[in-house]
Design a protein around this nucleic acid. Structure first.
Length: 266
DNA sequence: AACGAGCGCAACCGCGGCGAG
DNA sequence: TCTCGCCGCGGTTGCGCTCGT
């Protein structure tokens, strides 16, 4: 007996989401939470597959998402985590608050991969491309700060831009202490191998996860601060839909205003 | 100015894990 | 213990934008 399709493929809409659909989804989730993705589209009045709704929400609509390119430090962390975890994008993403697995995966495939290859590093094994993996060493060795005895280029040094745009020398300190943001405090801590491993495998959720595990999705102030100001919009709110809606830059606040701030708990 | 190639990102697809019954 | 169904993950696709010619 075959498994039932998750949705009626003849009825559900596919393709890019419209602003109207976004509004419905956000409004519903902020009001009711997402108890069951399968049932959500019907309840929210959407002609979408529940899976599609979940994807749209987690990858794009969640207000705690950072928008824009990954910072240099985030990129470093992604490389380091990838060396240890492989293509476990969700696990990697869980260590970068405000970033999604899809976003990290895309960034890896489009930017970091090429960068590593240009540096002569195999993006899969994190070994030099012209050098066979000489033993069954733990991939930890590749990027760990404490393993400086290794003669191999460490992955943490590989993201140094060859085009000269990034000149900081990370040969020994990687990202430690380069700025005072909270993220970097975390980074500097976890670049110690022991701490990193306990950090990686700890059961505790990240701030982001904790923020949005609550079905009510209360909008705490700190959840919306865009510390890195990556968006460049000059707002404390993350970019809401930078390119998605008629090419207009919308902040989350704009969006809230558009269909009722009270809906968002302001 | 027009066109084509390349790139980046949002979205889809299919599978595996896991919990409930 | 087994089956069923939902959720989440990783891989892939396709569209729109940008840049070079």
């Amino acid at each position: 007996m075959g498994r039932q399709p998750c949705c009626d493929k003849l009825v559900v809409k596919k393709g890019p989401w419209t602003a109207e659909e976004d509004k419905k989804l956000i409004s519903f989730i902020l009001t009711n939470g997402h108890c069951c993705w399968r049932a959500l589209p019907k309840l929210a009045g959407l002609r979408r597959c529940g899976k599609s709704c979940r994807l749209r929400w987690t990858n794009y609509l969640r207000p705690d998402l950072k928008r824009g390119l990954l910072s240099h430090d985030e990129e470093q962390l992604v490389i380091d985590l990838h060396a240890r975890l492989g293509n476990k994008w969700s696990k990697i993403a869980s260590r970068l608050p405000g970033r999604t697995d899809n976003e990290i995966k895309n960034h890896w495939n489009t930017h970091i991969k090429k960068k590593l290859v240009n540096m002569g590093i195999d993006p899969v094994t994190h070994h030099p491309l012209n050098q066979e993996p000489n033993n069954t060493e733990n991939p930890k060795n590749i990027s760990s700060t404490s393993d400086n005895t290794s003669k191999e280029p460490r992955s943490s040094t590989t993201t140094k831009e060859t085009n000269g745009t990034t000149t900081e020398d990370e040969s020994s300190s990687t990202v430690t202490g380069q700025n005072s943001s909270t993220d970097n405090n975390i980074l500097s801590n976890i670049y110690n191998d022991e701490e990193l491993f306990s950090y990686l495998w700890s059961e505790e959720t990240t701030n982001a996860e904790a923020s949005w595990s609550d079905s009510n999705y209360g909008l705490s102030g700190t959840s919306y601060h865009n510390d890195n100001n990556i968006s460049g919009a000059g707002s404390d709110f993350p970019i809401w839909s930078p390119e998605g809606i008629n090419g207009k830059e919308w902040t989350f606040l704009d969006y809230c205003q558009d269909f009722g701030v009270h809906d968002f708990g302001f």
